[in-house]
Amino acid sequence: MVEIAVEVNGRAETAEVDGRMLLSDFLRGVLGLTGTHVGCEHGYCGSCTVLVDGASARSCLMLAAQANGSSVRTVEGLADGEELSSIQQAFKDCHGLQCGFCTPGLLMTVTEIAAEVASTPSRHQIREQLAGNLCRCTGYHQIVDAVEQALDQAAGGGR
C-alpha cells in the first residue's frame, strides 16, 4: 500500500492505495468522482482524461500513486456551482454532446487547450488537437462548433 496526498478539484485528499490502483479507479471508486468515465483502459478513447497539474492525462494510464503530490482536476471541478463554465455552456449551446459518456474527457482536454490559446484555431486545428478523444454519437461536427465557440471566447479573454 502507498500513502498518497493529492489535491483534487482544490480539495486536499489523502489515502492509502494499492500501488497498482489506477488513477481512474481512485477518482471514481475512492473519491466517488464518477464523472470521469472509463471507456477502454488502454489510453485510446480519452473518456477518462483529467488534468494533472494543468496538463491533460489519461487517468487510466496513470497509477494513483503517480499522482502523489499533484493537483488533479476532473469534470466535477469545472462548473461554478450551478453555473456552467464557458466551455460547458458552449457544448450545451452547440449540442456538442449526446450520450455524455465521452464528454468529460473532451471538456478536460478543451480546458487545457483554452488555457493556452492566443487566437481561435481553425476547425482543422481543433480536430487535430482533439483527435485523441473518441466520440461515437455526434460525428464530431457539433463538438467542433462548441470548441470553436469556447476557444473564441478563451482567446478573446472572455473565459
Binding site: T34, V75, E76, T103, P104
Partner: peptide
C-alpha cells in the same frame, strides 16, 4: 437546448458503472 445536458456536462450523470 437539451434539458439533460446540465447533469451530463457537470459529471453528474449516473451510468451503471
Amino acid at each position: 437546448p437539451r434539458v439533460e445536458d446540465g447533469r451530463l456536462l457537470k459529471g453528474q450523470g449516473r451510468f451503471v458503472a
